[in-house]
């Protein structure tokens, strides 16, 4: 089975196989191009030699023969190189964890643990919302209390006002002064009665 080397791809930004393929194609292109150049140079040289009996076809055959050999060797050598590079250079050993994946080592949460954590967060959010609205209810009651206190203090002030009025008119303690008034009125009645008798 082909190792996709996905982890290496995460690190390098490309899969090692892609990298090797790119190098392989480039090398192969160069080889082919070079051989074409060699052939064209030789043919040009032959043009300068009118008496040579070598045909272009022969040169093409020679080119193909050399290229075929080179291509075989190239493939062999390249696959060896690829094997070594993929193993020693472009691979991440199994026990190595990339820095950006430290979280997976630090937080190996199972699905249940993850859901439990989510549940806990949801619960905290609910709780916070409840506390927030409780706070609002408490502040609302404080406002209400202010209004009620103001009303009750007004009532008391009214009582104070009433008693101030009495005091201002000489009736400090109403009960005593009323008793005093009652006594005086009784005396007055007695005196009145007396006067009437004497006048008869």
């Amino acid at each position: 089975s082909v190792n996709p080397m996905a982890y290496e791809a995460q690190f390098f930004g490309f899969t090692p196989q892609t990298c090797m393929l790119r190098i392989y194609i480039a090398f192969q292109d160069y080889l082919f191009e070079m051989m074409l150049v060699v052939e064209s140079v030789i043919l040009k040289k032959l043009d300068g030699l009118p008496n040579s009996k070598i045909s272009a076809f022969q040169i093409r055959k020679s080119t193909e023969k050399f290229l075929l050999f080179m291509k075989e060797r190239f493939d062999q050598l390249f696959s060896k190189m690829e094997e070594v590079l993929l193993q020693l250079v472009l691979s991440i050993p199994p026990k190595v964890l990339l820095p950006e994946d430290k979280v997976h080592e630090q937080y190996p949460y199972s699905k249940e643990q993850f859901q439990a954590l989510q549940g806990e967060i949801h619960q905290l959010q609910q709780q916070y919302r409840a506390e927030a609205s409780a706070g609002q209810a408490l502040r609302a009651e404080l406002e209400e209390q202010k209004a009620v206190q103001a009303e009750l203090e007004k009532v008391l002030q009214w009582f104070d006002g009433l008693e101030n009025i009495c005091r201002e008119h000489g009736t400090g303690n109403f009960k005593e002064s009323f008793a005093f008034l009652t006594q005086n009125s009784k005396k007055l009645q007695d005196v009145l009665k007396d006067v009437e008798e004497k006048s008869r």
Partner: peptide, 9 residues
């Protein structure tokens, strides 16, 4: 009033 029990319930 909040539906959940709160610290000042």
């Amino acid at each position: 009033l909040p539906s959940l029990p709160t610290s000042q319930a």
